[in-house]
Write a protein that binds this DNA or RNA. Structure first.
Lengths: 300, 300
DNA sequence: AAAATTGAATTTAATTATTAAAAACAAAAT
DNA sequence: ATTTTGTTTTTAATAATTAAATTCAATTTT
């Protein structure tokens, strides 16, 4: 009942580590100092000190905190492995949706999913309410959540949004000075694309990673938290889709590499019109691929 | 302790309403039918029926649910007024931030704020985790939330994002056919602007509403959930800023009206270049105004 | 017998009570 | 006067609790 003492346990173990670096008989620093160093409140420091005293590892009297003996392995507190972080939860969630083709309209069972993902139900709730901002999930009047996205419509809108943002990135990129390091990065990317193109027969799986690297490089010139956040979602969904949709993978990737190369070369040549044209071409085809794969999944 | 029976109470009252429309001696429909009509589970229907039975309003035996007498006012259950909805909470939150100039870095006290807004702490948590997607608030390791946005940087990025989205809307708008009703709406807006311009001396306060109407009309041509969601946040923040920043209000509004008019006329003339130019001009000035007002507040 | 309806049991989720942790405050020691 | 500690108060994370939804089996009606 009530919250876990996870925070205390990890702090106590860190305090043991601090003691291990000290000589027997020497003094531990002040509570405030310890609290600051360990990034916890003084309350935790004091409970930890009290336990050290009880274990006869230190002698605690007022501001005297004398180390009696070195802590051993047996003194450490066991920590239940920490729950997946927000980012990890995001990964788990999208992976689950795309791997099992969870259809739109499915009602999400918080209790079961939180068990499955190994996170407190509470965290999952928060995560979902974050997603509801993007209209991917919805809260029902009766309570609970339903997955409302991942329809063809969603894919279209997401792709269109991506188009708007990425075209903007291209325009901004082209107005950067010649000594900006984006140009070097683009040259490197061109080379990597050429390399992959040569060994495509054996390495065509590697494209997914390169694709993500390329798009995030282009987008990196836009310093904007809203754009960045949106792009995180976009790349996540595109990335996972490529991962699960193995249909025509090699041909698709070969075509995409050519499109990327044309786009990169146009940008390196500072050719505004050609760059926008090449970007448009690639992004539109990307959208079609995403849509087609959604329809394929439906049929399967 | 545990959840409220708010849902039961409102269902019970609605059931009384249904009984009121029926003749004494007639039969109530099946549980499933009632549940469906009232958009509530059968469990609630059954508990409500049981209470009706206890109150001697119906005679319930198996599938016989006979109305004995008409329900009266005294039978109705009192409902505690429902907590503000998600949208209302959003309004309350932004109003609070802008009215009291809550500075970036402030730690948000969930308990106190939820009391202040009259919502369960739980709802506020969910709301904040939604906002964290936009980087407006952040979760701290120690627990709790801090307001990290509403800096000049935030305003700049928000304005830039707005620019990208709205320029895209303009481009889409100009490619719409002549019989689309956007053109009629734009003509109406032009007239409203002219009217306000005439009576500006007395009515300059009305501009804030007209401004919102204009921008949302332009943006309405983009049918995209991501764009829409982003624009909701944008207009909210711009709207509230105009509301609290009374500095030079009349002059600012006069200038903005002229900019709007130029922009509208260019669009009505299907002049692509001029439209984009006018839009850019207005949006850039808008950004400067927002920034200036932020700096002013800092000084005050 | 098939369909509709009800009764009971199970599962799920909203809310509160509880406890861990943080923060604030007051007292004591350097 | 400043630092450090002891104590109290406040805040928030989680489990327990209860309302509500859902499921399944039994019963009645067509």
């Amino acid at each position: 009942m009530a919250r876990t003492d996870e925070r205390f346990r990890s702090a106590y173990n860190r305090l043991l580590d601090i003691c291990a670096t000290m000589d027997v008989g020497s003094q531990l620093p002040a509570e405030v100092v310890l609290a600051e160093r360990m990034e916890v409140s003084r309350t935790i420091v004091r409970t930890a000190l009290q336990k050290l005293d009880e274990e006869d590892l230190i002698n605690w009297d007022g501001r005297q905190k004398t180390l009696i003996r070195r802590p051993e392995q047996k003194h450490r507190l066991t920590q239940s492995e920490s729950a997946p972080s927000g980012e990890e939860l995001e990964q788990l969630f999208f992976e689950w949706i795309l791997r099992f083709d969870v259809p739109a309209g499915t009602s999400l069972n918080i209790a079961q999913l939180s068990r499955q993902f190994g996170v407190p139900a509470h965290s999952l709730q928060e995560f979902l309410s974050g997603l509801s901002r993007f209209g991917l999930v919805e809260r029902r009047a009766k309570g609970g959540w339903i997955l409302s996205g991942f329809t063809a419509e969603f894919a279209v809108e997401l792709s269109d949004f991506r188009l708007v943002l990425e075209m903007n990135a291209v325009r901004q990129l082209l107005s950067l000075p010649d000594d900006h390091d984006i140009w070097g990065k683009l040259k490197d990317l061109a080379r990597e694309h050429e390399d992959l193109k040569k060994d495509l027969k054996t390495r065509y799986h590697d494209f997914s990673t390169l694709d993500e690297k390329f798009h995030s490089t282009v987008n990196s010139v836009v310093k904007n938290r809203f754009v960045l956040e949106a792009q995180k979602l976009i790349s996540l969904i595109f990335h996972y889709h490529y991962m699960w949709d193995k249909h025509d993978e090699r041909e698709r990737n070969a075509a995409a590499i050519e499109e990327h190369l044309e786009w990169i070369r146009a940008m390196l040549a500072h050719d505004r019109l050609h760059s926008e044209e090449a970007a448009l071409k690639h992004l539109r085809r990307s959208k079609e691929t995403l849509l087609a794969s959604l329809k394929d999944h439906k049929r399967a």
